[in-house]
Design a binder for these strands. Sequence first.
DNA 1: GTCACACTGTTAACCGAATCACACTGTAGA
DNA 2: TCTACAGTGTGATTCGGTTAACAGTGTGAC
Lengths: 218, 218
Amino acid sequence: MAKLDSVPAPTLRRFPNYLTLLKQHLQDGQSHISCTHIAQDLDMTAIRVRKDLEMTGVVGRPRVGYPILPLVEAIEQLLGWNEPSRAILVGAGNLGSAIIGYAPLGQMGLKIMGIFDNDAHKIGTRIQGQTVLTTEQMPEMIRNHSIDIGILTVPEKVAQEVADSMVSAGLSAIWAFTPRPITVPEGVVVERVQLAASLAVLMGRMLEEDRRVPARAG
Amino acid sequence: MAKLDSVPAPTLRRFPNYLTLLKQHLQDGQSHISCTHIAQDLDMTAIRVRKDLEMTGVVGRPRVGYPILPLVEAIEQLLGWNEPSRAILVGAGNLGSAIIGYAPLGQMGLKIMGIFDNDAHKIGTRIQGQTVLTTEQMPEMIRNHSIDIGILTVPEKVAQEVADSMVSAGLSAIWAFTPRPITVPEGVVVERVQLAASLAVLMGRMLEEDRRVPARAG
DNA sequence: GTCACACTGTTAACCGAATCACACTGTAGA
DNA sequence: TCTACAGTGTGATTCGGTTAACAGTGTGAC
């Protein structure tokens, strides 16, 4: 039985990596896999893999490893990827379209129920087979289809406003691609994808490397 | 003078947040700002702000706060955002186009020097005013224009291959949007943007919340 | 049957980041 | 000039996640 303890965020972040690897080995016909093997494939230490898998409650056997199928099922259950969650996307710009087109979204238990924008030029157009609706129709959609997750890819200026109307319509989780934080009431979960933060880490480390080995002089 | 100690990754990640806030206050005509104020605006603790700003080497004054302009300059220097870095993007699909169209890229010191793809349908088309070139032309471009950063938005299958040819052409940093890790030699910096990981955290926490307050049943 | 050992499960040590507590400083106000 | 105090700077503490160390276990080989 899976533990009900809260899973640390770093572990949650690594779960998808395990999933893709496990599914691949499953397709190759294997039924068990050892954490040493997983660690090698994903370039991490065996201990960390063991610790992460411990969260699933699945037990392994000496000289055999962990049973893959139960692992996959346990992880998917911990992530809620075993059954589809209903989601909407607001902001059908470049980024929004890219997210919608991101193939493995379906494998992650996400079902896009609607796409919204307030740009007259975009309303009525189709993205990946779905018609773009006006933002005004959003709250109704959230209520009538009991949407769980809102994907926020609107420009900075209206981000907070849209988030507010999402929350007041009953959404419980927001996946935000906004450069600045948004504030939500207690109980609503927000996860931000910060491209700027990621780039900052990349360039910061790059400068550090250059400083350590000054091969190229600016 | 800014410290040359390595800046912790979490701090690097927060720097862009400070930057946008600071620039905004600068535009509003303010010359100084206190960490308490910053903390309130960004919904974090004052202590953490102070610790982060400590890395810049800029000193604040009691009852006045930190001088904004030096702060901005110090942070941009630590991130290498003060002068443009030359970058290329490989993989002109949905995601690639979205990245190219991501407005603040220029403010982050990134100058896109070329866009590459190996899909015959895309080669020759224009994205944000730039013509898509064939992947074969990439190494030449890297060498001739001393490109620093490669943005990797290709499908999973060719990711490692493209990364390899980037590295062998002399790139020193890769910003990868690939679902699986890529391996590079020592000295090359890789930063992955993992959409799946982010979504995993969101949904994991959502389930936790539901478990804690079981308002909605299945 | 029994032996070796690959691999797991668990407790303890470690480390870095976040947080706390508090001394210090110099400005603003009287 | 003096005082109060907002706000900084810093050493000590806590905390969570990673790593290490080691005991336990049951499979596969002989």
